[in-house]
Design a protein around this nucleic acid. Structure first.
Lengths: 354, 354
DNA sequence: GTTCAGCACTCACTAGAGTGGAGTGCCAAC
DNA sequence: GTTGGCACTCCACTCTAGTGAGTGCTGAAC
């Protein structure tokens, strides 16, 4: 459909939803400036941008066209333009260069991962802080899902006469627990018998695929303990409890909006783990790496944009990184930071256990 | 200096730092109204308060005296008065009735603990949400310290040729883990030997009191694993990692202050686990249950007040509840909520394991 | 000497008028 | 299609009263 024309620039023929090269340049310039200044951008500010070598009058007529097409909006007549969600969308879709972080940022990331230590949870927590620092956004880090991790150890630890703790260790180093209450006292022998049978039933099996029943032993009480243990494992295997969320730099949302109500509702969303985890997963599933405005469907975040980046551990998409900011966030920076940190984090998580 | 007069009311002789009955009533009325309205309180608003049956002119002269003594302040001449930190301090110190929650609140607490279930972490997390709901403050819940809990189980789970995970289960149901990396490959026998010796060394001992060394076995590699395991346990036993903090309702700080900067700095404090935990501990140690303004010494929280309440598990102070709000927070409500929820939570944590 | 009505005064807050300036849309000329 | 010029729009800011809640002071009453 696009025809090659004779122009010296790579001016694509504007198809539906497309823009000619100059309009695209103007739109990009408006978005870039608005991201920096948060002020409506006038035609005069754009004339010197690369790809725009025309007068301000021409820019104005192009801007009017961009407004007609829904890429820009005017707060009021006689004000400059601000991008619409559609405008931001075009901007991120046409980010030509896959930008990389500035040297200081790369240095910071390198230092972080050189000195990173400790258990996975604390590392993810600190990663969220790093990302928030780099991008001035709120960072969300979802830990690797344990669904696929094989069970390495199953143990029943007595806590009281009728209470025990099921402790499951997974191949990826995660430890999960679930307390089990018995209807009647269980003696030591039966408990260790049950533990042995649970181990036999579940060792090597991914936690999400633990079967519902195991062969009976003849002893009713032991059987009861075993089936309680299996039930507990199946509870652990369901997704809800498995995903850990770490949110860093939520205070950075305070300065992002003028309206106090907006800040408040955004922060309360961030307090709801399940909502955030689901949101990130949904965005990832649609194949996007950026969700702008209402694209994700969570209404209180309508004035926000979210950058998501999967984290691959041993080649499998395991965790997720998310960056939350106002729609006028610095997309190139956010994307670059998410990509770099995501890659490094994935490498780091892959190599542990070698 | 102050003389006892013939008054029919139980006017106490105002000692140093004390106030006569009417001034106290006026101060309390000002604080109470300011908490509700967040507006400077004029003399006219106070004349009908209990204990103040004088004209506004008299109230004015008393207010002037209260201002001289540092209990009240004026934003500017010809404005009403607002309480100073000292004024709030007097107010909370003389809260006559140990108020209790309103019926709906009590109902909410009852329902919560009737339906509370799941592991301790998620319960504490949800408790922080409950407290935030009840008081409209930000709630902080510090989980029971595990220092005194005896070790019930020690296990070494292999994750890789040179990597194992130390899993320690404590009597209170907590599970802690620490990964251990070996300099050379360790075979299965040595690993289980080491695990057995670690268990023998540590079982029944509180995690914070695990001894530094255990008897050697003669086999150098096993000894190395054992001592690595002991080291790991001692790391787990140090306080830092042990205290878990759950913060709920941080979005409620947004509306508490006019200044965006204040909100931002308060929220960034809340992101620093260690700072918050230390802060709560410090306040508790001074014996206060309320720290107002600068009393706690954390500068960014100078316009905040903090209500703390220890949580007793089995008669021992184990966890802590904290409520953070602006200095003009609703102290009676916050104190009542913290006390009730703290008590119920303590009961709940005590009974588990029976 | 404590209380109180009266009074003059203070000062944030609000509304309205005026002004400057950034920005637009339109148009005729190139 | 592009451009300089021009009239117009409208926000943001300043300035100026006017308003009203609230104060401090004073002198008289109890």
């Amino acid at each position: 459909m696009p025809t090659i024309d004779d122009s010296r620039s790579e001016q694509a023929a504007p198809g539906p939803g497309e823009l000619d090269a100059r309009k695209a340049a103007i739109l990009n310039a408006v978005v870039a400036e608005y991201i920096g200044s948060a002020q409506p951008v006038g035609s005069q500010h754009v004339v010197n941008a690369p790809g725009v070598s025309v007068s301000s009058a021409t820019v104005r007529s192009d801007m009017a066209a961009l407004e007609r097409d829904g890429f820009l909006a005017q707060p009021h007549t006689s004000a400059g333009r601000i991008p619409t969600d559609k405008g931001y969308r075009f901007f991120v879709d046409h980010l030509g260069y896959t930008g990389s972080l500035d040297p200081e940022g790369r240095q910071q990331v390198r230092q972080f991962f050189d000195h990173a230590h400790g258990e996975i949870e604390s590392m993810l927590e600190r990663t969220s802080g790093l990302l928030a620092d780099l991008t001035d956004c709120t960072a969300m880090v979802v830990g690797p899902s344990h669904e696929a991790a094989a069970i390495r150890s199953v143990q029943l630890v007595r806590l009281g006469p009728r209470l025990a703790l099921l402790v499951v260790v997974l191949a990826d180093g995660a430890v999960q627990k679930q307390s089990i209450e018995f209807v009647e006292e269980v003696d030591e022998n039966r408990l260790s018998d049950a533990a042995a049978r649970l181990a036999a039933h579940a060792l090597g099996v991914p936690i999400a695929q633990v079967g519902p029943t195991a062969a009976g032993s003849g002893d009713a009480q032991t059987d009861a303990v075993v089936s309680a243990g299996i039930m507990a494992m199946r509870v652990l295997g369901t997704a809800d409890g498995g995903d850990q969320l770490f949110v860093g730099g939520s205070s950075r949302m305070v300065a992002a909006f003028d309206a106090v109500d907006t800040v408040r509702s955004v922060l309360s969303i961030l307090e709801q783990q399940l909502v955030v985890v689901t949101l990130l997963r949904d965005i990832l599933e649609t194949g996007l790496s950026v969700a702008i405005g209402t694209e994700h469907g969570v209404e209180p975040l309508a004035s926000c944009a979210i950058v998501v980046m999967p984290v691959s551990v041993d080649g499998v998409e395991a965790g997720t990184i998310g960056l939350l900011g106002p729609t006028r966030m610095n997309y190139p920076l956010a994307l670059a930071a998410a990509r770099l940190v995501g890659d490094r984090l994935g490498e780091r998580l892959s190599e542990s256990g070698r």
